[in-house]
């Protein structure tokens, strides 16, 4: 299976690449968003800031949105999940908009949320295959979907309940970092890939 990581040039893709390779994928990092679409599975990684990533995404925004709507399997992680939405308080520019709603700052005293949190009401089928008790978060912003049906698991930081996993077409978005959530997180990523190839 060919997996392509969209490289916005911001940060660490190393662990993510390795976790995907361990799951049996042939992985490449690609900085051209249009060429990213020539793949079996697209991965939007979770590093950097929204404005910068939106700029890098801009030339291929409508093509990528159409590909995801058309059923290209995709996995968005942290910022990569936020890019599935329309816009963000973190920075200017447009996300893909395949899921309705905005990205907003966490309403909490301790921001960024850095550390291990739990999932609530996890009805996502992947959690049956690869259960997650604790997941690692490193984020100041969270998504506010227009429709709650998009959300298949939630987490809460202080008093703010936010989507941990979202779904649309064959796209999975996770706000946490599975590639940093130890062995269980790596198993979750492998299960997500397996679902993409199914």
């Amino acid at each position: 299976m060919r997996v392509t990581i969209f490289d916005y040039g911001a940060g660490n893709l190393h662990s993510l690449e390795k976790a995907l390779v361990l799951a049996g994928a042939t992985v490449r990092a690609e900085s051209d968003p249009l060429r990213c679409l020539d793949t079996d599975v697209l991965v939007l990684p979770g590093v950097g800031a929204f404005g910068h990533a939106a700029t890098r995404l801009a030339p291929a925004r409508s093509a990528m949105a159409a590909a995801l709507e058309g059923g290209l399997p995709a996995i968005g992680i942290c910022l990569g999940m936020q890019l599935l939405f329309e816009s963000s308080d973190e920075g200017a520019g447009c996300g893909l908009g395949v899921i309705g709603g905005r990205v907003e700052r966490l309403v909490a005293t301790r921001v960024p949320q850095i550390g291990w949190n739990t999932l609530e009401e996890g009805v996502d089928p992947l959690l049956n295959v690869a259960p997650l008790s604790w997941v690692y978060y490193a984020n100041s912003f969270v998504t506010r979907p227009a429709r709650a049906e998009s959300v298949t698991a939630w987490s809460t930081h202080e008093g703010d309940r936010f989507p941990a996993v979202v779904r649309h077409a064959r796209t999975i978005g996770v706000q946490f970092h599975p590639e940093k959530s130890s062995a269980a997180g790596v198993r979750f990523l492998a299960a997500a890939l397996a679902e993409c190839s199914g």
Binding site: A10, G11, V47, G48, A49, I114, A138, N139, S140
Partner: peptide, 8 residues
Amino acid sequence: ADRFGSQC
């Protein structure tokens, strides 16, 4: 922080 995000 502006370039890479506060979280890192």
